[in-house]
């Protein structure tokens, strides 16, 4: 018996383990799922690079790729405007959520005061009300306050969310009290303790919250459609829809618009991939 044969015998089970039937099934399912999800996206980009004559030629790689569609769409000033509208709304709402959700979450997690449980339950209970039911009250409220067809009108329902507050509360609860008390003894005021000590300790949760909020607002359709009437205030999804109606069957133009709308999402995803995976695991319950 030599060392070599012993090693060979020990080594054998490894590749076998990797090719367990369970794994093969998992990989196959994931692969098919991946293809199903990615294909339409690829066709969207592909079509956006074709001219009108080629769009029914279903080759994935266009025979004669062109950026003309992009110039045409971007040349139409409205598109840029919608893009900026969407950016403004998504960024403002995200910042607001990161700030206020965590402020309230922190207060609920780390301070004992009368009515705390009630406030928490009240916030939590709003999680169970579907958006569809809230749209009418929101609309009436906007109409009364003169918020219809304004940026604020688009943004206000999402400036703070119960989900975000809940998420942040759960995370602040994991921050040991010692960390905060040490800062208190060092003389920081309560706001500084939150901002300088507690917030940096929950950055994974903050990035998860920021990513979800940004993507959610970037793709939001229902409420912006209802609250906006003038085309200058459209966000990208609303603008794209009206654009699609206008362009009727010019698929290459519609696909170009859609591709442009997707790009920021892709960028966010590629840059923050690591955080998104972690965030999805952390948040767990995001529907």
């Amino acid at each position: 018996m030599t060392a070599a044969t012993a090693t060979a015998r020990e080594a054998r089970p490894l590749p076998m383990a990797r090719l367990r039937p369970g794994r093969i099934v998992t990989w196959t399912v994931l692969f098919i799922g991946g293809v199903l999800m990615v294909t339409p996206l690829l066709f969207m980009f592909s079509t956006s690079l074709k001219d009108a004559g080629q769009i029914y030629d279903l080759r994935l790689i266009p025979e004669d790729p062109t950026l003309a569609n992009y110039f045409e769409v971007l040349g139409d000033g409205r598109f840029l405007r919608w893009f900026l509208n969407s950016s403004l709304v998504a960024i403002a709402v995200t910042l607001s959520n990161v700030f206020f959700d965590s402020l309230v979450g922190y207060t609920l997690a780390k301070f004992r005061f009368r009515g705390r449980q009630f406030v928490f339950l009240a916030i939590l209970s709003t999680l169970m009300i579907p958006t569809e039911m809230l749209v009418i009250p929101w609309y009436l409220m906007s109409a009364n306050f003169g918020w219809l067809d304004t940026y604020w009108g688009i943004m206000f329902p999402g400036m703070m969310t119960a989900f975000g507050t809940f998420l942040m509360k759960q995370f602040f609860e994991t921050v040991p009290d010692d960390f905060l008390e040490a800062a208190r003894i060092d003389g920081l005021n309560e706001f500084a303790i939150w901002w300088r000590v507690a917030m940096p300790l929950v950055t994974p949760a903050l990035s998860a919250l920021a990513i979800f909020t940004f993507l959610g607002n970037w793709t939001a359709f229902f409420w912006p459609l209802i609250v906006t009437t003038s085309s200058e205030l459209y966000t990208l999804p609303i603008g794209l829809t009206s654009f699609a109606v206008e362009q009727a069957i010019r698929w290459e133009m519609i696909m170009t618009g859609a591709a442009l709308a997707t790009i920021p999402t892709l960028i966010v995803f590629l840059l923050l991939q690591r955080y998104i995976v972690r965030g999805v695991m952390l948040a767990g319950l995001k529907g």
Partner: peptide
């Protein structure tokens, strides 16, 4: 307030900030 007492405290789990 704690800060006005001119004392310093060391905690069991150190309470030093990872960031």
């Amino acid at each position: 307030d704690p800060k006005a007492r001119n004392i310093a405290m060391v905690f069991q789990n150190y309470a030093i900030y990872p960031h």
